[in-house]
């Protein structure tokens, strides 16, 4: 399997109120083609900064990339011209957002919002697709995320949909332009457990069906175990440990990981 995305020695600092502090220290990780990779950490671990740097949505300043490379399909995202990078973002790599409530514009229908995104993605890729072609594609992705009635959903406004359905829309949004890499930021955390389980299953199914690579950013170890085969554990801006998910959960090598796993309450009860 060839590596699709690789982050090498990434260091990022933030300057706030005139003081500089380093938030990422030499972070390296690799997402092979078609693999499901988790980046797990508690708040302040630097997982979100890593994700934002990869997506190129880090506010610069106050943030500054101090060093390192981010290679996507062999090209360095950090040094490529802005225009090329824009072409990649939302097309070859796309993002599944966390908050299904605020990531959708309440005054436009689902098909309007998906249509706009698709139009821009097409334009960036120099693809030619008319209105009807776009509509076909939209219904296609809505069916792909297992919407029972794509026609009706397409005509709906976000407020008419449940939280779980909105999260599906966000996934559909990410799938529109047939990406090779999905980056999911805490998928389903804003939802109920039962809905979250559905969303995670959907995400996993979609990724395997379409041979996509998945980079999942989360704080929830249970979610990691359920969806990803390989895990990077982050703490205080550093990768503390990485390896096959099963191995890490059963025999963590580092104290930090061990304590983290020990802190998770078990459904079997104490010492269960």
């Amino acid at each position: 399997m060839s590596v699709l995305l690789s982050v090498e020695g990434l260091s990022v600092s933030f300057t706030t109120y005139g003081r500089r502090s380093q938030v990422l220290h030499d972070v390296s990780l690799a997402v092979p083609e078609g693999a499901q990779i988790a980046l797990v950490g508690e708040s302040g671990s630097g997982k979100s900064v890593t994700m934002k740097t990869i997506m190129g949505i880090l506010p610069v300043p106050p943030a500054k990339v101090e060093g390192g490379r981010i290679l996507f399909a062999g090209r360095d995202l950090l040094t490529m011209p802005e225009r090329d990078r824009l072409r990649l973002r939302g097309t070859a790599m796309s993002m599944v957002f966390q908050d299904p409530m605020s990531s959708l514009n309440p005054v436009f229908t689902i098909q309007d919002q998906l249509g706009t995104i698709l139009k821009y993605a097409d334009r960036r890729l120099g693809r030619d697709r008319d209105r009807r072609g776009r509509r076909v594609r939209i219904l296609e992705v809505l069916a792909q995320v297992r919407m029972r009635d794509p026609e009706r959903v397409a005509r709906s406004f976000p407020i008419m949909l449940s939280g779980g359905m909105r999260q599906r829309i966000l996934i559909a949004m990410a799938l529109l332009s047939e990406p090779r890499l999905l980056i999911a930021d805490e998928p389903g955390t804003a939802l109920d457990v039962t809905t979250q389980a559905q969303i995670l299953k959907l995400l996993k199914d979609l990724v395997t069906e379409n041979g996509l690579a998945l980079l999942m950013i989360t704080h929830n170890l249970g979610v990691v175990r359920q969806t990803c085969g390989y895990t990077y554990v982050m703490n205080r801006g550093r990768i503390v440990e990485h390896g096959a998910t099963q191995a890490i959960f059963e025999a963590p090598a580092e104290d930090y990981t061990r304590n983290l796993i020990a802190a998770v309450p078990r459904l079997t009860g104490r010492n269960g």
Binding site: F14, T16, Y17, G18, R19, S21, V23, S43, G44, S45, G46, S48, V49, R236, G237
Partner: peptide
């Protein structure tokens, strides 16, 4: 991301003055 201890080190007054 900063730790809380660091955040605390930057006192209120200083932050306000800095922004002002």
């Amino acid at each position: 991301m900063r730790t809380d201890a660091e955040q605390h080190a930057l006192s209120n007054a200083w932050q306000n003055w800095f922004r002002f």
